[in-house]
Design a protein around this nucleic acid. Structure first.
Lengths: 332, 332
DNA sequence: CTGAAAGCGCTTACAG
DNA sequence: CTGAAAGCGCTTACAG
């Protein structure tokens, strides 16, 4: 392989292999048999291409083809079990289907989300999977205007089909698990506290709804001071609990592993009182099962969600409905 | 915004705005002032572009410019604190520098790594940051042949500059921390066990080397049965410890949070004997500080590593040397 | 079995 | 202040 500053093109290969650029192109993109080029020519071209370390210029190729096979994904974070797994599986599944995945991470910043969507469309993405976006409708709207399909994942929108976890059902089950374990292990029956998240967010409010239903089914009311949804950071969760001394048994429903971090920090500072606390978390982390007091976690079914998403790609008859995917409850 | 199946081009905008395609191009890529187009024309064009939901065709634009500003990154996993953080910060830092980041995740599969590198070069990436690759030299070799700069991150190679954590120094410090805490908290002095990783891997062997130096400095020898580097999975770590009943105090040096999962599983199954165990982990996880027996963790300095990497981009005078970046020791 | 030619959507040097 | 024209590297319908 030679060190060229200028990249090798099909014209370079054509002259080196004594063939026409058309022939080189056909050999290199695998259509040579269909175009009935001789195997001898094909092998000659491939050898030269190999020697020169040739790689096609995708920009030129896509421009001419007017077809990209690119499927884009917008994701808020990588540094997170859930979104990291989504991004990772998305790439693998796209490749397995012969598509080119391009993922970009937008930090929950509405402006960055929109810029990223525009960028992916600029790159001729044929479909955009919009994960956990703060304003999915703005993006699906823009996509529609450019004739690009979009699919919402994790957070619903009204402008495109939305694939979301069945947060309500899973929250209902998790709440029941925590209530049961409080009763079994501490002989205590009572309303749990809901910790973490923001009430204005779809996921938080849906989970809260499942949390409330589970209590209502047992004839329990939840008072406002039991809903501690002060944000997503570990700090905010630790802060809302700071003054809380569980002198009696108590139970917590923790919304997200980020909040769980704050809860565990609080819990581990309780000393002897920590034996009075049971909690469960709506989110999965492998270390979760080793945390004292943790009775179970909800794991969202990433594979099922993405499988559903891929099944909708390149179909134009998909109504902008919600598709609910059940979660998995992990019991410790 | 209208719903077009066919995407708007500068020619569409030109005829709608009553301007030439050249003028539209200049307005849309911001060079109109330099080209002394009238503000009136510019505003007319921008308004029409906005109305049509125009977004430039990057393929065409890059093809013509012969310059992409794309900087690629290959990363083994997203679903991992360390690599997730690398990918996330890489994107943010690239954007902040006016570059276009494209990250792809290659699952530690040598073939996939190579294909991904080829793909990124096909997309005209001008520089490739190769993170944790199993065969970095094959990739840097290929990049060099295409006139593309490459930089190794996390794992060193000989074909390109390599930015890596100072694993040896950090392992030395972590080993000392664990030894000290074993002595303080259990009154026990003795050689630690090294758990997890693969001896043939650069990172594992460098860390082992720091681990051994720290013991040697205290006049302790490590026998072979204290080196339990049976792989990276939680299962393999749990397996090598399965038979180990710590009837006496003991200490472990855990190589990676994945192995830590197995260690914690083993530890939490020990019952009363668990009080005889102290360990530390070379890798960072926010839940780590809550795990009983864990005395400290090493966090790699992602920001410093990436800052160094970006400082090398677009320089052609960089020798293929190693650049060591210190780690942070977190003490619990 | 094979090649010349047109054209994908842009950008920019050039001429006015 | 502005536009016509050439060309980036490919692909493919077409003609032989």
């Amino acid at each position: 392989m030679e060190k060229n500053k200028k990249k090798t093109t099909i014209y370079d290969i054509a002259s080196l292999a004594n063939a026409s650029p058309s022939a080189v192109s056909a050999v290199l993109n695998g259509t040579w048999e269909k175009r009935r080029l001789s195997r001898k020519l094909a092998e000659r071209v491939m050898r030269v291409a190999e020697e020169q370390g040739y790689s096609v210029n995708v920009q030129a190729s896509l421009l001419r083809r007017e077809r990209s096979n690119i499927v884009g994904m917008i994701v808020p974070k990588y540094d997170n079990r859930y979104f990291g797994e989504i991004a990772e599986q998305f790439e693998a599944m796209a490749r397995a289907r012969g598509m080119f995945p391009v993922v970009t991470c937008t930090q929950r910043d509405p402006q960055l989300e929109f810029e990223a969507a525009r960028e992916l469309i600029s790159y001729q993405a044929e479909c955009l999977i919009v994960t956990g976006a703060t304003d999915p409708d703005r993006i699906s709207n823009f996509c529609a205007g450019s004739g690009v399909q979009s699919i919402n994942l994790d957070l619903p929108g009204s402008g495109a089909p939305s694939i979301i976890s069945d947060n309500e059902a899973a929250a209902f089950d998790l709440t029941n698990l925590i209530l049961d374990r409080c009763q079994q292990e501490m002989g205590w029956i009572g309303p749990l506290r809901f910790v973490g998240g923001r009430l204005a967010d779809h996921n938080t409010s849906t989970r809260l709804s499942g949390f409330l239903s589970a209590h209502k089914a047992r004839g329990m009311e939840i008072s406002n001071d039991h809903v501690l949804a002060a944000g997503y950071s570990a700090e905010s969760a630790a802060r809302v609990l700071a003054e809380f001394q569980p002198n009696e048994p108590t139970g917590l429903f923790v919304n997200s592993t980020i909040s769980l971090e704050g809860v565990v920090r609080w819990h581990s500072g309780l000393g002897r009182l920590s034996k009075n606390v049971r909690y469960g978390c709506f989110d999965w982390d492998p270390f979760g099962s080793f945390l004292p007091g943790n009775v179970g976690m909800v794991e969202q079914d990433v594979t099922a969600m993405l499988t559903k998403a891929f099944s909708l790609i390149n179909r134009n008859d998909v109504p902008p409905e919600r598709y609910l995917v059940p979660c998995k409850l992990r019991v410790f």
